[in-house]
Design a protein around this nucleic acid. Structure first.
Length: 587
DNA sequence: CAGTGAGCGAGCTTCCGCTTGACTT
């Protein structure tokens, strides 16, 4: 990309356009310190979209989308346009991602039309990529101004039109088939529903088997220690109900070993636990769900924290932007962590967050928690604490522990006795996340003081435990969001919406934080998958993303061709004869 | 003459992803 200079005009007049209005004050201060006479304005997200009440895609004209102003956006755009003057640099700094590029495209078009209409002179429009709202972040953005990336815009159109075709062509098939209005299907909601329905079917068809495991009690320095009988891979050895001979054999062998000395090897190691990364939208929703917050509740609380509060006439935005899929922390954030913790450690959490739109969700000021408690309600404070703890933990030191494993020699047919335990001797980040340790069962075991080496211990007794395989567990709000994120279904701004839609349609129910599909939901899901598996199953999103990637990476002409190919392919699936009975009506 | 019903046409639901208010409960 060719780099341009923003201040080519003498008077340094600048109009700086972003998506979120809460950023504008900070940006404005920074731009003024660069000697720009800048006004910073926000689009509040997308300004244009396909119409709600019809398809809005001209299929015969190469799937050309018809974009209209979203409600209230005409006014917002007019307010932006009214600020344009002669000799102005207009910098479009919407988020550096696919959706942001499309927003930039739409606003740029409005600006160009306005300039022509009003016959304005000497106006220069450019696109900036701002990854963080700091002095350096803005400076870097202004030093590398470019043009709108048309291929990326085309890829956003492809995403939008795919979703529209799938949603608006398949939903009516449901109205007809189930004789019920308001039913819906879509790339994201139906795939999510299928995850939930699949789990239910797995549970229904699950036949838990009974099995036996073995605990062996060993005398170590007059202490009775319970060992597990395990295979070489350190998996608990199980004998299933129908293997009676095997059970008898193991029992016999173990009985013979009572009162006998057996050779054990003790191994001690110094190990550590790495902190968790700071929160992003998905993990915030997951952690809050464990405290009983629905995903949409969490988001509305986070919105309030983001907008902030007044403390003694001074305004404090309490957290960074809460819709993000990055765990990157800006320099500013690292400085903040340093100022609170004194000594910090930078951990490496993820590679893919080089050019993300927003950083991790973190606190923004070093405010006294007790003071803050007076300004926030209980719910707000709980969410704030989650964000606070995960942020500081991420810059704290690893927790350190003594790890010990005691392992017997080959006891019976390649089976061994294992005893693993651990003892924390340096808390590190666990001071912020004390519950995290519950994920490690070894800390619930007594830690025995033994040096490395070979020992003889006497076997005292053994127990045979009869157990049943446990049923797979249904999704919770927390785990369904995790699964959606892992499979790439949906985006941070939509996890909560998707779950709400499934609830509204009566496809799912949530009881005590457990998600159940309704009978109706199962029927709808089965019906949809039997007809439109290619478009509505879980892996379609990954397919779509790879196609969108191709579009993004191509030049404009190829991108247009790929756009047409992709949508034709999708449309042909929708049209295929046995499914298309309703489709011929429109278009 | 009153009630019934065939036939026709108009109007309606729906997707995913960006952003906040402006609403109601």
């Amino acid at each position: 990309m060719k780099s341009k200079k923003a201040n080519s005009n003498n008077n340094n007049l600048m109009l700086f356009i972003v998506e979120s209005p809460t950023k504008s004050k900070t940006i404005s201060n920074i731009l003024n310190s660069f000697n720009y006479k800048a006004s910073v304005v926000a689009t509040l997200g997308h300004i244009k979209d396909l119409p709600v009440n019809n398809l809005g895609v001209n299929i015969k004209d190469g799937f050309k989308p018809i974009f209209l102003f979203l409600p209230y956006k005409k006014k917002i755009v007019n307010n932006i346009l009214n600020k344009i003057e002669d000799k102005m640099s207009i910098v479009i700094a919407t988020d550096p991602d696919r959706e942001g590029e499309a927003i930039a495209f739409h606003i740029a078009n409005e600006i160009k039309n306005y300039i022509k209409l009003k016959n304005l002179k000497d106006i220069h429009i450019s696109r900036a990529f701002i990854n963080e709202i700091t002095y350096n972040g803005i400076k870097k953005g202004l030093e590398n101004l470019g043009d709108i990336n048309v291929s990326m815009v085309i890829s956003q159109f492809a995403r939008r039109v795919s979703d529209r075709l799938i949603g608006y062509k398949i939903s009516p098939v449901l109205w007809q088939a189930f004789k019920l209005k308001g039913l819906s299907a879509g790339r994201v909601q139906t795939a999510t529903l299928k995850l939930i329905v699949d789990k239910e079917k797995e549970i229904l068809s699950f036949k838990p088997r009974t099995f036996y495991t073995f605990k062996v009690v060993v005398d170590i320095n007059n202490k009775k220690v319970e060992f597990n009988l395990m295979n070489k891979e350190k998996e608990i050895f199980k004998v299933f109900e129908n293997e009676k001979e095997k059970l008898d054999f193991i029992e016999l062998k173990l009985r013979e070993l009572i009162s006998k000395e057996v050779v054990f090897e003790v191994l001690n190691e110094d190990r550590y636990i790495k902190p968790l990364p700071p929160l992003k939208t998905s993990t915030l929703q997951q952690e809050a769900a464990k405290l009983g917050f629905s995903a949409s509740k969490t988001m509305s609380i986070a919105q309030r924290l983001f907008e902030g509060i007044k403390i003694k006439d001074k305004h404090f935005g309490l957290i960074t932007y809460h819709r993000t899929d990055s765990v990157r922390v800006s320099k500013e954030g690292i400085e903040l962590a340093k100022s609170i913790l004194g000594d910090i450690k930078i951990h490496r959490f993820s590679d893919k967050s080089m050019f993300d739109a927003h950083e991790a969700i973190r606190i923004t000021y070093n405010l006294d928690l007790n003071l803050l408690r007076n300004y926030l309600n209980q719910e707000e404070f709980k969410i704030y604490l989650l964000i606070y703890n995960r942020f500081l933990a991420a810059f704290d030191y690893e927790a350190k522990y003594y790890y010990q494993v005691i392992k017997s020699n080959n006891l019976i047919d390649d089976l061994y006795l294992f005893y693993e335990s651990g003892k924390i001797y340096f808390n590190g980040f666990l001071r912020f996340l004390p519950d995290y340790i519950n994920n490690f069962p070894i800390f619930n075991k007594d830690y025995i003081d033994l040096k490395d080496g070979v020992y003889n211990f006497k076997i005292i007794d053994f127990k045979v435990l009869k157990q049943k395989e446990s049923y797979p567990s249904r999704y919770s709000i927390s785990s369904i969001i995790k699964k959606m994120e892992e499979t790439g279904i949906g985006r941070p701004s939509t996890y909560a919406n998707t779950i709400n839609t499934l609830l509204k349609r009566n496809y799912i129910q949530i009881k005590k934080n457990t998600i159940y599909p309704t009978e109706f939901g199962i029927k709808v899901c089965d019906f949809l998958i039997s007809k439109y598996k290619e478009l509505l199953d879980i892996d379609f999103t990954a397919f779509l993303e790879s196609k969108l990637d191709d579009i993004e990476k191509s030049n404009k002409d190829i991108a247009n061709k790929l756009y047409l190919n992709l949508l034709t392919e999708i449309y042909n699936i929708l049209l295929s004869e046995k499914k298309g009975f309703l489709l011929k009506k429109n278009n």
